[in-house]
Design a protein around this nucleic acid. Structure first.
Lengths: 108, 108
DNA sequence: TGCACATTTGGCTAAATTGACAAATCACAG
DNA sequence: CTGTGATTTGTCAATTTAGCCAAATGTGCA
């Protein structure tokens, strides 16, 4: 694999990695349902330390998946990757298929 | 977030994490172009130690993204997640948009 | 049986990721 | 200016991940 190819896959991996965490997937899905949310709301829903949530948000923002909008002392985040919903469908289809394979194996 | 929700996002994260690596993204894309490939071919293309490639493959298989097929002493891998192609398109659109934002910033 | 080839696994080290706490910022009201 | 609430950042320990070498396993052939 040459340098150019390498760079291409690293760029893709940056985005994929940003998504690769339960909390971040939750945030992305939540922002796909509700136009925008402030850090405090997300923190409340997630139930982790606010500093932790803030770091997850910064990571997603760094990848260009979400964007922030300051309003007074609050910061709202908004999804910037509408197509991610199709990705969730795709993941769910894999999960469903995996579950099905599992059943097949048990049945013999 | 309750336990059920938690489990849901962890299941999704397992798949997303499995994709979150340049080499694994390369493998997935390669398998989307060419029906199947043996470990040796992929190793050749990637240019890493075969044991490393084998581990990446095992991870993808563990997530249900690819499946293996033994033939003699060789093992072929095949994609099991056709929808992943749309995901790549989605990622590319984010990358394009990020690049565009970058340009805007530079221009002022 | 014994050799050669393809692949996986053990073991290990280096690097990256995660999460909590405390401290620093920042915006705003008084 | 000072205090308060919202958010980010510094720091650090614990965990996970990545990649290599060597060794083990599995398959087919002489």
């Amino acid at each position: 694999m040459n340098a150019k190819q390498q760079a291409k896959y690293e760029a893709r991996a940056k985005i994929t990695k940003a998504l690769a965490h339960p909390t971040r997937l939750f945030i992305v899905e939540e922002l796909s349902k509700r136009d925008r949310r402030c850090v405090c709301e997300l923190t409340e829903m997630i139930g982790a330390d606010m500093s932790t949530v803030s770091r997850h948000l910064a990571l997603l923002k760094g990848a260009g998946i979400i964007e922030d909008e300051k309003q007074g002392s609050m910061v709202f985040y908004r999804l910037r990757m509408g197509c991610v919903l199709k990705f969730f469908d795709c993941i769910e289809s894999v999960l469903a298929r995996n579950a099905e394979s599992q059943r097949q194996l048990l049945r013999g």
